[in-house]
Amino acid sequence: MSTPSRHYKDELQDWLDQRLDADTCAEVERHLEGCPECRREYEAAAWTKQQTARHYVPAGLPPELQERILRSLRAEQPMVTVLPMPQRSQKRAMLPWMAAAAVAVLAAVLTAVYLGRPGSLPETFAADYRAVEARSLALELVTNDVKAMESFFATHGVSFNTRVFDLGMMKYQLVGGRVQAPSDRPRALFVYEGPNKQQVVCQMYLGKVGDLPSGAIVRQNNGISFQVYTVKGMTAVFWQEGAVVCALVSNGGAEEVIQLAFAKAMP
């Protein structure tokens, strides 16, 4: 094997931080095969980055500090415009076809209620929905631009192509999103808001719907199989798009969530 003419220190760092184009990536990979020095440099940096991201233990926020800051903010700006909180689903005016279909689905779902195991993905996604609703899970990008949202995911550790849906026809507007579990198996999470502030949270990740827990209601549409779970009053619909699993979660009507999934899923 010939001795490399130069080392690739800068490129290695960019490769590690996903800042290289595909051609240069391939060039770096070829170089590493023949250069033990660069391979070791890469191994050390990659291991260090991974350990830091996974195991760094942040200092806990003192509970009294948040209260103190909120008091100061509100005292300084007494003219607060209080935003309406998202309305509960029972106050939402549903379209007649949705109401009829929801009754049918609800009856079916009640016969096979999914008892979400702690840590299972439907359970996790339901918890994420609650956190978004309670605003304890921050959106890292606030935007109604689907392309901006997709670009954000591409530059923040999501390795697969995300397809951020345009749900405008269904009167749902994108609010923003964030990357979940960025150091483990990144998930693209994005939030929509619809009529009466009803929220729908979508998540995408690399995986297989076959790995989801049993207990789902299976619906078919346009050749696609949809797995429907109910977890703590929420509906979570999962389906496969290539190597990516997509999920829609909402505490609105079950059939409404399912119809949104039907409308946007691609074979």
Binding site: L70, L73, R74, Q77, T81, R135, L137
Partner: peptide, 10 residues
């Protein structure tokens, strides 16, 4: 302030 809190407090 409420909108600011929604964006910043988390």
């Amino acid at each position: 302030t409420a909108q600011f809190e929604a964006v910043a407090v988390p």
